[in-house]
Simulated assay, not measured.
Amino acid sequence: MTYDAGSGPRAGLLGGETVRGLPAGVTLLGLLGDDGERLADAGATARSAPAEVHPLAGVRLLAPSRDPPRSGTVCASWTTCAAATGPSAGPPTCTRPGRRPPPSTSGTPPP
């Protein structure tokens, strides 16, 4: 989890009504990308030797990452999709959940 206890965003572990913080500068995003070992090690550290401990009521919960990575395969907009695939490719599709096609799905970007 990511939280702020008054000194900026910090990664930590929630256990019941207690937040156990990891050292400053550690981010959840930085703990991802391997086989889970970094995340597991960070959890063990937060349990056994937290950098700080706060009651849950004393922190503000934040989004896991303020700047998540973006995949080049996810379309920024329907217009971008259509422009990238060209009008002959058919209706643009998008991999973002909850997105709906525009009223006109001709594959041609609007002027």
Rank of each mutant, 00 (worst) to 15 (best):
T85N: 06
C75Q: 14
R100T: 12
A5D: 05
T108A: 06
A24L: 12
G30T: 02
A82W: 02
T73K: 07
V53S: 09
P50Y: 12
G21N: 12
S48P: 04
D35S: 14
P102Y: 00
T95L: 14
L31Q: 01
T93N: 02
L32E: 14
W78P: 00
A63T: 10
A44Y: 12
T2C: 12
T73S: 13
L39V: 10
P50T: 10
R99L: 07
L13A: 09
A84Y: 08
L22F: 09
R47W: 13
P64V: 12
R47V: 13
S71E: 14
P102D: 02
L56H: 08
H54L: 12
T105R: 06
P111D: 08
G33A: 00
A63L: 09
P64M: 12
A40Q: 15
G33K: 01
D67L: 13
S48Y: 09
H54Y: 11
G72Y: 04
P103H: 05
G58F: 06
T45W: 11
D67Y: 10
R10Y: 04
T80M: 08
S77Y: 07
W78D: 00
R70S: 15
S104E: 05
A84K: 11
G15Q: 14
A42Q: 13
V19I: 09
G30Y: 01
R70W: 14
T95M: 06
T79N: 10
S104A: 07
P68D: 09
P55M: 09
R10G: 07
D4V: 07
T93K: 05
A83S: 09
R60C: 00
T79P: 04
D41M: 14
T18H: 11
L62M: 02
R66S: 15
P64Y: 10
Y3R: 06
A63V: 10
Y3V: 14
G6S: 01
P110V: 07
G8F: 01
L39N: 05
G6A: 00
A57I: 11
W78I: 03
E17R: 15
A51I: 08
A83D: 09
P109W: 02
L39T: 10
P9Y: 00
L13G: 06
R70I: 12
G8T: 00
G25N: 05
S106E: 03
P111R: 09
A5C: 05
G15P: 04
A82N: 02
G30C: 01
L28W: 11
A51W: 08
T2A: 13
T95S: 13
G58A: 15
L61W: 06
G21A: 15
R66A: 15
S106M: 00
P110N: 00
A76V: 13
P23V: 04
L28A: 08
L13M: 11
V74C: 01
A24G: 10
P55E: 10
R96S: 02
G36W: 04
A84G: 04
L31V: 05
R66W: 11
T2N: 06
R38Y: 03
A44S: 14
P9L: 02
G21R: 08
T45F: 10
P101W: 02
G43E: 15
D35C: 05
T73I: 06
G72V: 14
P101F: 02
P92N: 04
P87Q: 09
S71P: 09
L61F: 03
T85F: 11
C81R: 08
P110S: 04
L13S: 06
T85R: 15
